[in-house]
Design a protein around this nucleic acid. Structure first.
Lengths: 196, 196
DNA sequence: GACAACCTTCCTACCAGAAGGTAGATAAAG
DNA sequence: CTTTATCTACCTTCTGGTAGGAAGGTTGTC
C-alpha cells in the first residue's frame, strides 16, 4: 500500500484516459482490466458498478479542477494572466497529447444518453467552470485588467465555448496548433494593452 | 415504394437522432429496429454493418450541409447575413430540440475511438465547414461586410469553435438560450455597423 | 394471358462474443 | 481471525451479424 499509486487510482486514471478518447460507452471494464493488469472482477471490489466508477471519476476531476483554479488565483493576480494560463494549460495538454480532451466536455456531448448520476456531476462541472470564469471576468473588468464587450456572464460562457470548440477542432483536424491559434485572438480581444 | 420516406431513409433518420443523443457507441441496431418498426435483421439488408450505416449517414449529412450552404450563399449576398443565418439555424434547432446537436461535432469528440472509415468522413465534414467559413470571412472582409481582427482562416476556425462550444454549453446547462447569448457578441464583433 | 424466374424486402431463428455483474475461494497483512 | 485485495468461474443480457426462407412485385418468354 506504500505504492506511489493505489490500484483504485490506477483504475480511475485508466478510465479517465479511455473516456477521453471514446466517451462513456467507448470503454469497458475489460479495457481497464487490461491496462491496469488485474482481472475484470477485481474492479468491482473498488467500484461496484460502472456508474459508481465514472461518477467518482468526474467528481474527482471537478475537485482537481477546483484546486488547480484556486492555485491559479493565488499565484496570478492579473485576470488576463489567469485566462492565459488556463488556455495555455489546455494548449500544453493537447500538444503533448497527454490529456487531449476535457473529460467533462466529452461527457457533456453525450449527456442525454448518460446515467442521471453521471449527468448530474457533469452539469456540476459546467456550473463550476461557468461560475469561476464569470468571477474572473467580473474582477478583471472592475480592475481594468480585462476589456469586456458584454456582461461578465456572457463573456465567461463565450470564453468557455471557445475553449471547448477549439479542443474539438484540434481533434477533428488532427492539428494541435489550431487550439492556440483560435485562443490567441480571443485573449487579445480581452486585453487592455492590445490595439483595439 | 411510393411512400414519402423509404425504410432506408427511416433507418438513417432514426440513427441520426440516436447518434445526436449518445454518439456512435450510444445506440444499437435494436434501438433503430424499435423506432422504425422492423426487425433488427432487416436493417442488415439496407446496411450490411453498423460502419456502413454510419458512414452513409455522415456522408449524406455533409452533402445536405453542402446543399444548404449553397442555397444560403445564393439567397443572401451579405456575408454577415450568412453567418447570422447559420447561427440562427442552430439556435432554432436547439431551441425546438429538433436537432439539438451537430452529428459531426459529437462524432468528432469521440474520434480516436471511431472506426477509421467514419473518422475519415467526420474529418471531411470539418474540412468542408472550415473551408466554407474561411471563404465567407475572406469575401466579407474584401467587400466590407465583415470586420476581421485576424486572418480569415483563424476567424473561420474561431467562429466554428464558438458555435460548437455554444452547442455544448447549451446541452450541459440544459438552457437553449445560452446558444444565441454566446453567438450574439461574436457576430456583433464581426459587424461593421456595430459600435466598436 | 400464363407461367416461370427473378428481385426486393422483410421475417424467424440462430450464433459468437462482449457487456456488466455475482459468488465464492484464496492469500496476505494487521 | 478479520479485513483487504485479488483471483477463477460463472451468469445474464446485449451486441453486431448470419442463414435461410416467405411474401410480394417485376420481367421475360411462349
Amino acid at each position: 500500500m506504500s505504492n506511489v499509486l493505489t490500484t483504485s487510482d490506477e483504475i480511475l486514471a485508466s478510465a479517465r484516459t479511455l473516456i477521453m478518447s471514446g466517451g462513456y460507452n467507448g470503454f469497458s471494464y475489460a479495457d481497464i482490466a487490461e491496462v491496469v493488469g488485474i482481472r475484470k472482477a477485481s474492479i468491482h471490489h473498488h467500484f461496484p458498478g460502472k456508474v459508481d466508477l465514472v461518477r467518482t471519476l468526474v467528481k474527482e476531476y471537478r475537485e482537481d479542477a477546483e484546486r488547480a483554479v484556486a492555485a491559479l488565483e493565488h499565484e496570478l493576480p492579473d485576470s488576463l494572466d489567469i485566462l492565459e494560463a488556463y488556455a495555455g494549460h489546455w494548449a500544453q495538454c493537447i500538444e503533448d497529447a497527454s490529456r487531449p480532451f476535457c473529460v467533462c466536455a466529452l461527457l457533456a456531448s453525450e449527456l442525454p444518453a448518460l446515467p442521471p448520476e453521471i449527468a448530474g456531476e457533469v452539469k456540476a462541472f459546467f456550473r463550476f467552470l461557468s461560475t469561476w470564469l464569470t468571477s474572473v471576468m467580473e474582477r478583471g473588468s472592475r480592475e481594468g485588467a480585462l476589456i469586456l464587450s458584454s456582461q461578465p456572464r456572457v463573456e465567461a460562457e463565450a470564453f468557455m465555448a471557445c475553449v471547448h470548440g477549439a479542443m474539438l477542432s484540434a481533434r477533428a483536424h488532427g492539428t494541435p496548433e489550431v487550439f492556440p491559434a483560435i485562443l490567441a485572438p480571443t485573449l487579445q480581444r480581452l486585453s487592455p494593452t492590445a490595439v483595439q
